Amino acid sequence: MMSSAAASRSDITRQIVVISAVVFMIIAAMFGAGVLGGTPVQDLQGGALSANATVLAPASSAFSIWSLIYLFMIAYTVWQALPSQRDSERQRRAGYPIALTAVLNGAWLLAAQFTTLILTVITIVLLLAALGATIRILVRTPPRTIAETLFTDVTVGLHLGWVTLATVANTTAWLTAEVAPSSWAEVADAWGIAVLVVVVLIAGATAIATGGRLAPALASAWGLLWIGVGRFSGEPESTPVAIAAWVAAAIVVLVPLVMWATGRRGELALRR
C-alpha cells in the first residue's frame, strides 16, 4: 500500500501528465491547421488526405467535429485537474490512457506533416486501439456522476467514434495513393460500399461492447453523413456510395437507441 503522501504525489503527477499531453495535442492541432506555420492537412501528402481524394473521404465540413472533440478534451483536462478528482479511482485508471490518446492524436498530425502516408495509418490505428482500450476501462468502472459521464465518457466516446471513421478514410487514402493499381477506380464504388458495411459492423460492435453508449455512434454517424454529402455533391461523385453512407449512418445510431429502448444496455456491455 502506498502512503497517502506518495499516493497524492502520484495523483498530481497523473494530472500534470494529462495536462501536458492535451497541450501537446492542441499545439499540434494548431500547427496542422496552418495557424503556427504548418501546412493544412488537406494539402499534405500530395492531397491524399483531402475531402475529394477517395470515395470514402468525408466532405470538408465533417472535420469541424475536431473542434468539439478538442473542446471536450480541454474541459476534461481542466476537470480532472481539480482537487476533487485527484484521488478518484476512476481517474487513476483512465487518466494515463486518455493522455496517451491525446499524444497519439498530436502525433498523427505531426506524422502527416513530416513523414509518410503509411506512418499516418500506423499512428491512427494505434490511436484507435488506445481509444478502444480506454473506453473498455470506462465501461468496467461506470461513472457515478453526471460530471464523470460528460467530461470523461462523452469525451472519449466522441473521440473513438470519429477516429473509427477517420481510420477507414486514412487507410483508404493510403491504399488509393500508394498501393492500389489504376484499375482500382473501376471498382471503387463496390469497395467503398463493402468498407461501409465493415464500418457498420465495427460501430455496432462498439455499441454492444459499451452498453449502448451514444457518443461513439453519433460521431461515427456524423462522418458517414458527410461521406454521403461528399459523394453526392462533390468529387469523386458516387451516388451508390452516398446512399450506402447515409443508410450506414442511420443504422449506426439505431443500434444503441434500440438497446436503450429494449433495456438491453447493461446485459450486453463488456463484462467487468
Rank of each mutant, 00 (worst) to 15 (best):
S4C: 00
A6M: 10
S8T: 14
S8N: 07
R9F: 07
R9N: 12
R9T: 13
D11V: 04
R14H: 00
R14D: 00
I16M: 13
V17C: 12
V17N: 08
M25P: 00
M25A: 15
I27C: 10
A29P: 00
A29I: 07
V35Y: 07
L36Q: 09
G37D: 08
G37S: 07
G38E: 07
Q42Y: 03
Q42S: 14
D43F: 13
Q45H: 13
G46P: 06
S50R: 02
S50K: 05
N52F: 06
T54G: 06
V55E: 01
S60E: 13
S61M: 12
S61H: 09
S61I: 15
A62D: 10
I65L: 12
I65C: 01
I65Q: 04
W66P: 02
I69K: 00
L71S: 12
F72M: 15
M73Q: 14
I74C: 13
A75K: 08
Y76R: 11
W79A: 14
Q80M: 11
A81F: 09
L82Q: 11
P83D: 07
P83Q: 04
D87G: 00
S88Q: 06
S88R: 05
R90N: 02
R93G: 07
G95N: 00
G95K: 03
G95V: 06
I98P: 00
I98G: 01
L100M: 12
L100H: 01
L100P: 01
T101E: 01
V103A: 11
V103E: 04
V103S: 09
L104E: 01
L104W: 03
A107I: 02
W108S: 12
T116R: 14
T116Q: 13
T120D: 07
T120P: 00
V121L: 04
T123N: 12
I124W: 00
L127K: 02
L127R: 03
L128Y: 04
G132P: 03
T134S: 13
R136Q: 15
R136F: 13
T141E: 09
P142T: 05
I146G: 10
E148Q: 11
V154R: 11
V154G: 01
V154M: 10
T155E: 02
V156P: 01
L158V: 11
H159T: 02
L160S: 06
L160M: 08
G161S: 12
W162R: 01
W162H: 08
T164Y: 07
L165T: 06
A166V: 05
A169V: 10
A173W: 03
W174A: 06
T176P: 02
A177M: 07
A177F: 09
V179E: 04
S183E: 10
W184F: 15
W184K: 02
A188W: 04
D189L: 10
L201T: 07
L201N: 01
A203I: 13
A207S: 15
A209S: 15
A209V: 06
T210Q: 08
G211D: 09
R213L: 15
L214A: 13
L218K: 03
G223I: 09
L225F: 15
F232N: 14
S233K: 11
V241N: 03
I243H: 01
A244L: 08
W246V: 15
W246S: 10
A248D: 02
I251M: 10
I251S: 06
V252H: 03
V253A: 11
L254Y: 01
M259C: 09
W260A: 15
T262I: 04
R265N: 14
G266H: 08
E267F: 06
E267I: 15
L270W: 14
R271S: 12
R272I: 09
